[in-house]
Nucleic acid binder design. Structure first.
Length: 348
DNA sequence: CAACCGTGGGC
DNA sequence: TGCCCAAGGTT
């Protein structure tokens, strides 16, 4: 099973591997060219729960600005967070910087899966992926793609997430000892382009002859998943203020932990169920409540945000005046509030 | 270990 | 339009 499955998959990958900014082509790898571990690590962290299309521009900007791990390790925290703004899951950016500094101090990336796993922001998947792709070590790489492909190959009917340990064992059965880096990337490409969540293209699949789910006609139904909880509704208020004397904006850096941790934003109320809570404005001013509201959905709740604006020279109780503020450094929900408010400031 | 943690695109 | 989803990690 393993031998012929991997053989068919790798033959397809040799002919159809996608060209990606961080990837070494199978032809180059066959010549002995190895990828830069820094670029593999950076791409894998960016790709956690994030699509290739969303990552590409961020990856190119990061590697242009910080070409190696030493350069990234020397970067200012706020610069890295600003460059990550909009990509989401901001703990990744904080861990990225901590990891870069640990690796730079150590003189390079660990060359074992266990060593990689000990790094901040590097879990079981990412450690295995770096080991396989950057170092061609025979790690068992299991991500969402591999779970989906494997569940179909074996027609595994147990729902996720309970089926995860079984799927990991089955994925290990499929994994060859030869070409682990190309094999891992081939599974990703297969999952991303052919063995997709909906409407899998079984008719052109290079491993259709190995697939039990295709034979049973249930490929599109797998993997089965436990039902998800509904997202509750929350509400809050943000205050956007400008100081006329120098054009500075009132900005609050959010706490390191929790939602949007370490990112800049506008001060405001907590975000709670049951309507916006009573809240004292961050400074005393004649606040204007804007028509309309910001709608945004996070991983586990919907948010409705009221936006209030003012111009003032007062000393803030919350946040600080920042003349160097750039809206490009904002996380998306704050960017939406900015987009609603910015036109109103033209008269100021 | 279940809950928490973003965002944009596809259907 | 609302829901599902995407190369998961941390606590």
């Amino acid at each position: 099973m393993c031998e012929s499955f991997a053989k068919d998959l790798l033959a397809w990958y040799d002919a159809h591997a996608r060209v990606l900014p961080w990837r070494i082509s199978p032809a180059d790898r066959a010549k002995g060219v190895m990828p830069d571990p820094y670029r593999i690590w950076l791409s894998e962290v960016m790709l956690q729960q994030t699509t290739v299309a969303a990552v590409k521009d961020y990856f190119n900007r990061f590697t242009t600005r910080w070409p190696d791990v030493a350069a990234l390790a020397a970067a200012a925290d706020a610069d890295v967070m600003a460059e990550w703004a909009g990509l989401g899951y901001y703990a990744r950016a904080r861990n990225l910087l901590a990891c870069a500094r640990a690796v730079a101090s150590a003189g390079g990336f660990p060359k074992t899966e266990a060593g990689l796993l000990a790094l901040p922001g590097v879990g079981p998947y990412t450690a295995a992926a770096i080991a396989a792709i950057a170092f061609d070590l025979p790690a068992v790489v299991v991500d969402g793609n591999v779970e989906r492909v494997t569940s179909r190959i074996f027609a595994m009917n147990d729902p996720l997430p309970a089926a995860r340990p079984k799927l990991r064992d089955l994925a290990a059965e499929l994994s060859p000892r030869e070409r682990p880096g190309d094999y891992a990337q081939a599974m990703m490409d297969l999952g991303a382009t052919i063995c997709t969540p909906r409407n899998p293209a079984c008719t052109i699949c290079p491993v259709f002859s190995h697939c039990a789910a295709r034979r049973l006609g249930i490929a599109a139904e797998l993997p089965r998943k436990a039902p998800k909880a509904a997202k509750p509704e929350r509400a809050g208020v943000v205050y956007i203020a400008r100081r006329p004397s120098d054009g500075a904006w009132l900005i609050e850096t959010r706490p390191e932990k929790g939602l949007l941790g370490g990112m800049p934003g506008f001060p405001g109320s907590d975000w709670v169920a049951g309507g916006a809570p009573a809240h004292e404005p961050p400074l005393t001013a004649d606040w204007l409540t804007l028509n309309g509201e910001v709608r945004h959905t996070f991983t586990h709740f919907h948010l409705s945000l009221q936006v209030r604006i003012a111009r003032s020279d007062a000393a803030p109780r919350q946040g600080e005046w920042r003349a160097d503020f750039s809206p490009s450094a904002l996380p998306t929900v704050m960017r939406k509030a900015w987009d609603l408010a910015a036109p109103q400031f033209h008269e100021f």
